[in-house]
Design a protein around this nucleic acid. Structure first.
Lengths: 155, 155
DNA sequence: GCAATATGTTAGACTAGTCTAAGTTTTAGA
DNA sequence: TCTAAAACTTAGACTAGTCTAACATATTGC
């Protein structure tokens, strides 16, 4: 049952997932507000996702996720989060811009890239002794001044 | 005249740009083959892009880019290239997968992120003394063995 | 407890991007 | 040189995702 969702549908799942995490429940109007679309649009998405057994919805009631839907949503969210970290911590993009950009890129990266990016962070974090990895400190200087500080790496 | 193109339209511009670079000219059928759509689909895209003054096209003839179209296409191509490098050189994703993925992500990254990524590469390349940056060598070991080699960085 | 308001649903229209099928123009080889 | 094949174009249909407008249900405060 390998779902092949459009990025639009992934966005709906992710939004429901987030609202449930933050508010405990998700409702049509909230989903619409978050995604900046009309409720009627949310309705047709919910209709489709319900048919795909990813979403649960009783008329005029709360919107939920099936086990499968929750799993998919969590996957998209993980991609979002690692991309946000990469953009802010690594490339030092400002958080508001990074947030928007992560929303777009999250649908475009593969499982493989997600895993590598995650591994890169764990590599960086624990492979360096400083609070903030030295590499990032040096890159920050380079971004600001254009000057590359010497870096000697030894095993 | 800040163009606000869909990623689909960016793909058409980029494809024309590439075909011109490789073959000297671009034709409807070649664009269709590259993008895996039918010629009739290419036709309607060309119609739109011509109206936007981004593409030049004489019936039954070659397809070209205006100055503006060329500039936009080159921008998309640059994003593609830096993403491909990041995916292959940095995350060590295999070239075929990286190529496909770069095609998707290229439409989602901002100018700012493109610039930062470019700067990160120039920082990496010249800030380290080895043929291949030591950082990448260490990350490669980490990916294969899960072991982090010691790295002492000094200014 | 019911009227006013907020929330949700349905129907139907529109756009972008795709296709198929039919028609037109160009090219190339006998 | 003219005809068959290849390349291109046009017309029209379809889908996903959006909207507006009208209708239905829930909630809330008097």
């Amino acid at each position: 049952m390998a779902q092949n969702l459009t990025s639009t549908m992934e966005d709906y799942l992710e939004t429901i997932y987030e609202l449930k995490k933050v508010n405990g429940v998700a409702r049509v109007g909230e989903i619409a507000d978050k995604l900046k679309v009309k409720s009627s649009t949310v309705n047709s998405a919910i209709k489709y996702l319900t048919e795909q057994n990813l979403v649960l919805h009783e008329k005029y009631g709360y919107v939920g996720l099936t086990k499968e839907g929750d799993k998919l949503a969590a996957g998209v969210k993980s991609k979002h989060d690692i991309l946000f970290r990469f953009l802010t911590e690594f490339l030092m993009i400002n958080p508001e811009a990074a947030e928007k950009e992560a929303c777009c890129i999250e649908h475009a990266i593969s499982e493989e890239t997600f895993i590598r990016l995650t591994k890169f962070f764990s590599f960086l974090e624990k492979g360096f002794t400083d609070e903030k990895p030295k590499l990032l400190q040096l890159f920050e200087v380079y971004l600001k001044t254009g000057k590359r500080m010497k870096c000697n790496c030894e095993r």
